[in-house]
Write a protein that binds this DNA or RNA. Sequence first.
DNA 1: AACCTAAGCAACCGCGTCGGG
DNA 2: CCCCGACGCGGTTGCTTAGGT
Length: 230
Amino acid sequence: MAQWGIMEAEEGWRKGPWTAEEDRLLVEYVKLHGEGRWNNVARLAGLKRNGKSCRLRWVNYLRPDLKRGRITPHEESVILELHAIWGNRWSTIARSLPGRTDNEIKNYWRTHFKKRGKSSSQNAEKTRARLLRRQQFFQQQRQQDQLNAGKTDLRMAAAAFKQEMAAYPVVADEEAMFCSTAAINAYAAAATVGDQAEDMIFMWDGLWNLDDHLHGSITNKLADCYTNFY
DNA sequence: AACCTAAGCAACCGCGTCGGG
DNA sequence: CCCCGACGCGGTTGCTTAGGT
């Protein structure tokens, strides 16, 4: 790959993509000296990389406990759930997903959930389709729980949410779209219960045009609603 | 087949925090 | 108490790949 080109900083540090040989040297270094003291790598391992670059390469790519492959639906749901709680604190979220890095989660979030402006209707369609798949997953996961839980407060929670939503201005710019775990779970729960799905669909739709600065407060309120479900 | 665009992802950068001297 | 180096985190960049026209 010619990504970034092959660069050398004025200090003599190499930049850009790592070669297999560099990877091997770094792995050898960590085997011998353990993680940390990254600024020693250049001296002890013969790498022309600064410590920061070495640490990043190790943490995000070379660590043996890293999980390869696609994010599973379960992991996706965890990401959504924790993002609703923690916001963009990717490292905090990553701690709950063994084998996944903050960088990976951040990239995943940005790619799948942080929707950008243009062709917004297309984006909306794609996201709704994704939501549907997610909903199917939740349906499987939670069906049993729902049956056991007595599936009571759904309509009440939806009504409460409608009331909350009415207190906030709606922004017509889909740039501000975001996903809320509470809404997703609520949606999934609604689908599980079936006859109350209409209210939950309203809940979801209400989230499409929220401005970013409302994210926190809305998320908290949704979390409250969500708590009421289970 | 050629071109275009969006998605995916590795890597960089800047900044904040922490601990040792 | 201050300074400085090491480290960690979140945001951003830009190249590659995949899919669509």
